[in-house]
Write a protein that binds this DNA or RNA. Structure first.
Length: 663
RNA sequence: GCCCCGGUAGCUCAGUUGGAUUAGAGCAGCUGACUUCUAAUCAGCAGGUCGCAGGUUCGAAUCCUGCCCGGGGUGCCA
């Protein structure tokens, strides 16, 4: 039961009645949105704030308007008599018997009293999308985890969800592997582990390609640095303007130049270090010398693959399965699944027809030899075909939308992708609407960059991106230490086997990693920290898992047959403040889910679960369950415990997070 | 240059799309509570000019304008 939705429903007729007296139509829906949970408990459970703006429209004192609404609205079965307070707030307190009735219904309901969406929609969710030619790294975690959580939540709410992993399986990276295979293969290594050898080949070829680009880049950087130094010298020599504003501008320009200079200097240092690293490695240096044109050769291999070259296609078909197996291994560790994995290669044959169609419809036009789509209000065009005839990812994205629309007729497509691609999606969506797919809702579910604790994009000490496998290992290892420490510290001595500890650490570690990401507002950059992530308190998965385990332990200790308890029903008693606070929070699960899905923000769900676990902890401390004063109280509290456990478990599962019975 | 995002407690962040002269959490700091159903917990204290300046109205962290600071993007990478 969604109490908020019910209250809004109840207010509707009253507002409609007021609207009749009015010439201009009232925005009833937007007024109803002003019914919301109270900010403070002393103002009741919910509050209706529409009397103030309504008073202005009706040209009547808001308090009088509020009083008239209270007179007309029928809430007697749900709420205590509403109170008008302050300038015209209507404060609502749920009747305890009503609250109890809702929760009683939830105890025997598999869905915890949450009705499936009346208007079920079809969603395609595009998430994870790694490049499969190289190992997954920290940059993939957000898309994967957020996308998975949204898929699970929407599905639970009764929508049809199609999870599609749009992998990169057709780009230059495969050209690199093919080139590497033809020139640097270690057959024995390939035999024993194809993925490992392919990853090595990718890294090697990538290093060599980069190496040969270095001289040009270093020259450019040197020139840039020299130019900046010169500009800086000129600026420094300039006399300070007597005009205050002008002087400020000068100072600002100088600061800007200085920071650009520092940046340029750092870049030059990094490039030089890269060159040194290769030169210092005898074997690598020899390989570099033997393959001076490796950059263009790689592009040729890629082009040959795209053109249908038999050998390259054969190699590609051979490489793909182990690459897919490798990412699948990570997904299984993360417990993330997809309904489809349709990568770039799947759309290869559709690209030329897409461009033709855009051309025919006059949407794409030639400009500087490239096929471009110019959209209103965007100064840069979206390029769908390069001068050399090659297609781009914009082209693939268009073909993908066409396929998805034809195949699944979705109401919405969600792209869980880095916010740095915002412009690309603006262009893509604008083009798609002109192209004719204007019924499907296209949403860029954007998220921020994963940063290290220094505020720079998260890298290892040596400057490499952090592999996802290692990240998971580290999270689990740290969780293990915490688990072991807590087990050893038990008053009656450690109670778990090594296998128990490992199993719990796995669940807790992965959960911590996912939760740290999901609990953050997805749009802001996310500072990655193992320490914060695995902190044992605060707004963490561990805290919720612990609350869950404590409930389960009560049932174990008391040898309570939960099934029997639910079936027997029995009256809930909400007497203590902590009991009522917990009961009310349990009822709000449905609101939290709606809020989460409204703009695709899992942090609303994590926030709710934290609040719930918090209230449970207070309840746990203040209200004895097994040793309750009387049998009725004991039964009632057991039911509250059971509902809490199920809500926590369900909520966490919608985030892709598992629970353990003991921890 | 232009476009987008952000600036909230020492640190990391919430803030339900304008609500209650009292802006919330968690870390970190300080006080208390384990012979008790798991202290991976709870109760409490302290900590803020919500970047700055104007404006809009009954009411602004939230909306508008200008400015300051940071990040990202910006015609043939993805």
């Amino acid at each position: 039961m969604n109490a908020l939705a019910l209250l809004r429903e109840r207010f509707h007729p009253a507002l409609a009645a007021l609207a009749e007296d009015l010439a201009a139509p009232l925005q009833i829906e937007s007024l109803l949105e002003m019914v919301k949970p109270s900010g403070e408990a002393k103002f009741g459970d919910y509050q209706a704030n529409f009397a103030m703006p309504l008073g202005a429209t009706l040209k009547q004192p808001p308090r009088e308007v509020a009083a008239r609404v209270v007179e007309m609205v029928d809430l007697a079965d749900v709420c205590e008599p509403p109170e008008v307070a302050g300038p015209g707030f209507i404060n609502l307190t749920l009747r305890t018997d009503w609250l109890i009735a809702q929760l009683a219904a939830a105890t025997t309901d598999e869905r915890l009293g949450i009705a499936p969406a009346a208007d079920a929609k079809t969603y395609v969710i595009d998430y994870s999308a790694p490049n499969v030619a190289k190992p997954m790294h920290v940059g993939h975690i957000r898309s994967t985890v957020i996308g998975d959580a949204l898929a699970r939540t929407l599905r639970f709410l009764g929508h049809r969800v199609i999870g599609d992993n749009h992998i990169g399986d057709w780009g230059t990276q495969f050209g690199m592997i093919i080139y590497g295979y033809k020139n640097f293969l270690d057959p024995a290594a390939f035999e024993s582990s194809a993925v490992t050898e392919l990853a090595r080949l990718y890294r090697l070829v990538n290093t060599l390609v980069d190496f040969h680009k270095l001289p040009g880049q270093i020259t450019a950087a040197e020139e840039n640095l020299a130019r900046l130094e010169e500009q800086l010298a000129t600026a420094a020599a300039e006399p300070e303007s007597s005009d205050k504003k002008e002087a400020q501008k000068q100072a600002k320009a100088r600061r800007r130049l200085e920071s650009q200079r520092d940046e340029s200097h750092a870049e030059l240092t990094a490039l030089t270090a890269k060159r040194e690293a290769v030169s210092a490695d005898e074997e690598l240096a020899a390989q570099a010398a033997a393959h001076p044109d490796i950059g263009t050769r790689v592009l040729e291999e890629t082009a040959a693959l795209h053109a249908g070259d038999a050998e390259n296609l054969k190699l590609w078909k051979e490489f793909l399965p182990p690459c897919l197996e490798d990412i699948e291994r990570i997904y299984s560790r993360l417990d993330v699944t997809f309904d489809h994995t349709l990568g770039e290669s799947f759309y290869h044959d559709r690209l030329a027809p897409v461009v033709d169609d855009l051309k025919t419809k006059g949407i794409a036009v030639e400009s500087d030899g490239a096929m471009c789509v110019f959209n209103e209000g965007q100064d840069a065009p979206m390029i769908v075909q390069k001068q050399d005839g090659a297609f781009l990812y914009a082209t693939t994205d268009l073909a993908t939308i066409e396929y998805r629309a034809e195949t699944w007729q979705p109401d919405a497509i969600l792209y869980v992708v880095d916010h740095r691609q915002s412009l690309h999606f603006e262009q893509l969506f604008a083009t798609v609407r002109r192209w004719g797919y204007d019924q499907v809702e296209l949403v860029h579910v954007k998220f921020g960059t994963v940063l290290g604790e220094d505020g720079r994009p998260f890298k290892t000490r040596s400057g490499d991106t952090v592999g996802l496998d290692g990240l998971l290992d580290e999270a689990i290892e740290r969780a293990y230490r915490v688990v072991a420490e807590n087990d050893d510290a038990k008053p009656d001595g450690a109670e778990w086997s090594e296998a128990d500890r490992r199993r719990i650490a796995e669940v807790v570690g992965i959960a911590a990693l996912k939760y740290a990401d999901l609990s953050q507002n997805r749009e802001s950059d996310y500072v990655f920290s193992y320490d914060k992530m695995l902190a044992m308190n605060g707004n963490t998965a561990t805290y919720m898992q612990y609350a869950y385990a404590r409930v389960r332990n009560i049932f174990a200790r008391g040898s309570v047959d939960v099934e029997q308890l639910r079936d027997d029903g029995g009256a809930l008693v909400v007497a203590e403040a902590a009991e009522r606070a917990l009961a009310l929070e349990l009822l709000r699960f449905s609101e939290a889910l709606e809020e989460t899905v409204a703009d695709y923000r899992p942090n609303h769900l994590t926030g709710y679960l934290f609040e719930l676990a918090n209230r449970y902890s207070t309840f746990y401390n203040e209200c004895p369950v097994l040793k309750a004063a009387d049998e009725a109280t004991r039964r009632s509290r057991l039911l509250l415990c059971d509902l809490t456990a199920r809500t926590l478990q369900t909520g966490l599962s919608l985030l892709g997070i598992n629970t353990v019975e003991k921890m």
